[in-house]
Design a protein around this nucleic acid. Sequence first.
DNA 1: CTGAAAGCGCTTACAG
DNA 2: CTGAAAGCGCTTACAG
Lengths: 357, 357
Amino acid sequence: MPTIRDVAARAQVSVATVSRVLNDSGYADSQTRARVLRAAADLNYQPNANWSRLKRQSSQTILFLLGNWPGIVMMHMRLLAACERILRGQGYDLVFARYDYARDSAPGDLTLPRMLAQSGAVDGVVLAGVHHENFLHLLDQRPLPYTMLGNSFSGPAAAQAHNCILYDDIGACAEAVAYLRRLGHRRIAFVGNVALPWFGRRYEGYRQAMQEAGLEPISVGDNWPMSGLDYGQLATAQLLRDGLAPTAILAGNDEIAAGLWRELSRRRYHLPHDMSLIGIGNRPEFGVLDPALTSISVFEDQLGERLASLLLERIRHPESAHASETYPCKLIERASCAPPSTPMPNALTIAARKKTP
Amino acid sequence: MPTIRDVAARAQVSVATVSRVLNDSGYADSQTRARVLRAAADLNYQPNANWSRLKRQSSQTILFLLGNWPGIVMMHMRLLAACERILRGQGYDLVFARYDYARDSAPGDLTLPRMLAQSGAVDGVVLAGVHHENFLHLLDQRPLPYTMLGNSFSGPAAAQAHNCILYDDIGACAEAVAYLRRLGHRRIAFVGNVALPWFGRRYEGYRQAMQEAGLEPISVGDNWPMSGLDYGQLATAQLLRDGLAPTAILAGNDEIAAGLWRELSRRRYHLPHDMSLIGIGNRPEFGVLDPALTSISVFEDQLGERLASLLLERIRHPESAHASETYPCKLIERASCAPPSTPMPNALTIAARKKTP
DNA sequence: CTGAAAGCGCTTACAG
DNA sequence: CTGAAAGCGCTTACAG
């Protein structure tokens, strides 16, 4: 790549003059100016990005760090895309990296991602996926601002007091329970592995709402070694076999809801009359479910945008501490919920349906 | 952030000595060495990333450029994740950026993404999404290696001779047609907007296979203003209303297949006997479809890995021109295809089913 | 074994 | 109006 020296040589001026012309700073004779511009164009000269990073002491780059997440989920992709949109508009680039680390390592034993092991590589970090206290501790020791999607942080709630963007899935689950109760349901189950932090939060919202209503929580499926569709399928079997007899199910996410939906359909349950079903996530890819799935939208696009814009605020005003912010979710009513049938369909009545062609 | 000067001052040595100790190059007295190490640790010193980028003339950064794609699809996320995995292993970082540009702008009128407008910001580019010739022309003028997922390139095939990774969706569509023919189908429809480059390629594979078999191509849905589920739904209506009477449908992607599946189910078609259905993409989120969707896997993870590794080869050996590489797809047989019923169910027989509860 | 100095590409006071 | 020089943070021959 040509450097400013090449341009200076070709235009037969000093590098200082080239710099002045190209940056429109200071005086320049119009002929000199023309020579410089032509030389720069001829050589297809582009200023070196790394110089300005070194000079400005700012890389104009943000790191999106997806922590401890083996697969890929749409939620993260949408957060990433939303961050990128905001940051690009503000002249920042976005680096995507994954980072897996043990939750129980001492902070000193953690091997930081390459971009964080150096200084000056990034101006700030957005934390998505699952993160643990040991890593946050390490981050806190550096003059590097970060923001975090708080819902899947595994540590104590106190660590979420600052820098976090949260969505109110706890409140949304309570709302879902209230909605199902208004429809007349009393036997409402929750399906999700509560050992995982985000399902744990959701279960908590559900449990509290049930308790306040004087209803008995029903839940299955801690620490099963699968997820998504298969998880939903196994949960269906368990809920029906164990005689728990729910008339409505709140699934920990849409994928589990889809698994429940598939298995219930196979067993000839007619939704929503034989069973009401609510998902969480409002994922468009599950629009294929019929009747359409009632689900809780968490508005990831806005969360991603806010993660980015809050980070930029912190970068620009490092002194001001930013309290965490919690955003509401919304129950999107579709067609998968209805009042419970009377009498409640049981295994026998359902089995009878299988006889008819 | 502390610099090497701060460390040198604290250890009471020159910056050269600090550099030698920290990089383990050259001799150093063990006491001096200890003083330097302690000073660096005390100050939590990290070398400045931008200096080494400037010095090495390499940013160790790759740009993943998602072109002209308004939404977010899993395919791109998987490609991105696969690239990141390979690149991280090789000491490179990955920047994610989107880039929308008009296909008919002159190359000179294009505003390049920030990272490409500067020199030295990235060492190479992976092109995903949709790209056009004008932009490639601009890229070709620079000493910046790139690789491209060729299937959604909108320009002439000749421009795909180098630097491209392709998946053989043309061959896969021909294979799908052959498979359906073996099952006994003759009226096989294709559903997808062939005006889009990737659907155009897939249609071409389908059309050729049909022609060679002496069968008449059946297709609907050019340039409808929607996509995915809704597209599949409208296509179903059109295929059935217009008396095209297919017994099998090859969908341009899994989402369209899901839309067809949903609408056919609503109309009381029993899959696979009333209609066989094949998708493209083999997306796990459509695992909820029952009977399970037969689909063509394009192995995005391998494509993403190869996009990254080929790019690294090009960076390391800039002189050698790399021919494009095409990778096979695979038809994953599940339960959505069967021999056509005899007699073929028509609108009347299907309508009769709706009468029975 | 250690320090002074040059240099990566560029900008910006400072002379002339 | 233009050039020589210092400096961003660091490494690496080159002296001593």
